[in-house]
Amino acid sequence: MRALVQRVSEARVRVGSEVIGEIGPGLLIFVCAMQGDSKAEAAQLVHKISRLRIFRDDAGRMNRSVADIKGAALVVSQFTLAADTKSGTRPGFSKAAPPTEGELLYRYFCDQMRQTELPVATGEFGADMKVSLVNDGPVTIWLDTDDRKPRSQ
Score class of each variant (00 low, 15 high):
142 W>V: 07
114 R>E: 02
123 G>P: 06
109 F>D: 00
120 V>I: 11
133 L>E: 04
129 M>H: 07
138 P>N: 14
91 P>H: 04
139 V>L: 07
139 V>C: 08
128 D>L: 14
130 K>W: 11
129 M>Q: 08
126 G>N: 11
122 T>C: 10
140 T>W: 10
97 A>R: 05
113 M>S: 09
98 P>M: 10
140 T>D: 05
105 L>V: 07
94 S>M: 10
99 P>T: 12
108 Y>T: 04
116 T>G: 02
129 M>F: 10
127 A>N: 06
85 T>K: 09
83 A>V: 12
111 D>M: 03
117 E>S: 13
104 L>V: 08
143 L>V: 10
140 T>C: 12
132 S>E: 15
108 Y>N: 02
86 K>R: 15
112 Q>R: 14
89 T>V: 12
123 G>T: 05
95 K>L: 14
108 Y>W: 08
131 V>I: 12
128 D>V: 08
109 F>S: 01
105 L>R: 03
124 E>K: 01
125 F>C: 03
102 G>E: 03
130 K>S: 14
131 V>G: 08
87 S>L: 13
125 F>V: 03
138 P>Q: 15
106 Y>V: 04
141 I>W: 06
101 E>D: 15
143 L>D: 03
101 E>M: 13
108 Y>D: 04
110 C>M: 05
113 M>C: 11
106 Y>A: 01
97 A>S: 09
108 Y>R: 02
104 L>H: 12
130 K>T: 13
136 D>G: 04
98 P>Q: 15
125 F>N: 05
133 L>P: 00
119 P>M: 11
105 L>N: 04
132 S>M: 15
132 S>Y: 12
124 E>Q: 12
143 L>N: 07
135 N>G: 08
139 V>D: 04
